[in-house]
Amino acid sequence: MADQKRILMVAVQKPAEALRMASGLTLLDDAVAIAAWGRLPGGSEVAEQMEALEFADVPVAELDRGEDALATLARQIIDNDVVYCV
């Protein structure tokens, strides 16, 4: 059996799509985390995905677009095996 990978989904331009993709990645039994560049938008599409991600215990971090956020995101990118930016 292969080692568990750490996957980071960075939600930048299409946050609802990034959340949907991250939900699908939870089926792989790999550790999935989400970093949203800025606040996630409201709406039913995002709420539905957030509910699924919460059920799967996927951590979601909303990064305020400041200098500290860039350093936080850089550290998360380094600490993960696979990074998707959507």
Rank of each mutant, 00 (worst) to 15 (best):
P59T: 03
L8Q: 11
G24Y: 13
M9W: 05
E62W: 06
G66M: 06
G24P: 04
M50W: 00
V32T: 05
R65D: 09
D30H: 15
V10K: 05
V83K: 04
L25M: 15
L28R: 04
E62V: 07
R65S: 06
E45L: 07
I34L: 14
V86Q: 04
K5P: 04
A16N: 09
L19N: 04
Q76H: 08
V10R: 03
Q13E: 13
A22P: 01
L27W: 09
F55K: 15
V10W: 02
A18Y: 00
V83G: 06
A61I: 07
M50Q: 14
P15D: 04
L40H: 14
L19A: 09
V32Y: 08
Q49M: 13
A47S: 13
V12T: 12
L40C: 14
Y84E: 03
C85R: 05
C85E: 05
G66K: 09
D68F: 08
F55E: 11
G42E: 12
M9R: 03
E62P: 12
E62S: 10
I78W: 08
M50L: 15
A31L: 11
R75L: 06
A71L: 15
S44L: 13
L53Y: 04
E51H: 01
L40S: 11
R20T: 13
I77L: 09
V12Y: 10
A47R: 10
I34F: 05
I78R: 15
D29T: 03
V58Y: 01
L73Y: 00
A71I: 09
S44F: 11
Q13H: 14
L28P: 01
E67C: 11
C85Q: 06
S23T: 11
I78Y: 07
A11Y: 06
F55P: 00
Q49L: 00
P41A: 14
A74G: 10
Q49D: 03
V32N: 07
V46A: 13
L25C: 09
Q13S: 14
G38L: 07
Q4C: 10
R75V: 09
G42N: 11
Q4V: 13
Q76M: 15
A18N: 00
V46H: 12
P41S: 08
A56V: 00
